[in-house]
Design a protein around this nucleic acid. Structure first.
Lengths: 145, 145
DNA sequence: TATTACTTTATAATGTTTATAAATAGTGTA
DNA sequence: TACACTATTTATAAACATTATAAAGTAATA
């Protein structure tokens, strides 16, 4: 399925000088294939069969590494544990009110907003739009003098 | 300062049948006056002087009560502990694509999106817009037959 | 003011996440 | 391919926020 994504991810790791271990390979694969937002413990349990001796710390360590490289997002909903999401390309726009410049901005958490809206209002929610407005660094620099 | 907000909040508690204790009064007052997003521990420490015997559990219990009544929102950024925010009246719209009906929808978490966007892009972020699109219960009922 | 149910307190328990140190294994090089 | 170097894994313990429990205390109502 998502062979390409996994390959890209592994390349990204290689380019950043991060070693590719079987555990890292498996965690990435699981994140990509599961299409869900698993907790660290979900991942730990899911890979228990393949890696009976893997430590929970390994899962946490590697999720941190992936997050630092930008491959994974940590989502904190209200509940006890974080969820981890392989980063895809959906994004929003941040718009400068002075010069009109548009900058991409990635934020995966708004899926949750749709779900909540659907739950609260009874709507069948299909999509949403969001733009963020502000002043870009260049324009706010000009204002200073 | 925010005398009115505190009074309203206390009335809201009264109307919901929640008892007003000195601790609850103080926690609400602190939330309203501090203008920040304190953690439970922040609140606990801030009220240590007034209530030397107050238990941390009291802070957590009451924050939960306030959240259930809708006075307070719990914000989970990535770090270890939740922050708590006194709720004001800002809201979003859920729009029916069939009949155009607009339903209010309250979701305070997007303040976090602004902060993140600002951090990532370097913009001075001022505001944002979001609408959620879907089909309202009435219209999706009609579709069925 | 007396009653009743809700709250607070103090403490222990739970559960997630991080720190530590020894053992192990990936990667570049000869 | 084998070596050496260093990052990584493992196992364990520790840290930390949050929740559960039960006894003592207190707000609200008549």
């Amino acid at each position: 399925m998502a062979e390409g994504q996994l390959k890209e991810a592994l390349d990204a790791l290689k380019n950043t000088g991060v070693r590719i271990t079987p555990q890292r390979h498996a965690i990435l694969e699981y994140l990509i294939d599961s299409m869900s937002h698993p907790t660290a413990d979900d991942i730990y349990k899911a890979l228990e069969g393949k890696f009976p001796n893997m430590s929970v710390a390994t899962v946490y360590n590697n999720l941190r590494v992936f997050r630092e490289v930008g491959l994974v997002k940590e989502l904190t909903y209200g509940d006890s544990s974080s969820r981890f999401d392989f980063v895809t390309t959906h994004h929003y726009h941040v718009i400068c009110q002075e010069c009109g410049k548009i900058v991409d901005f990635h934020y995966p958490g708004l899926d949750e907003v749709e779900q909540l809206a659907s739950h609260v209002t009874g709507f069948k929610v299909g999509n949403h739009r969001m733009e963020i407005y502000g002043v870009c660094p260049e324009c706010s620099g000009k204002e200073t003098h």
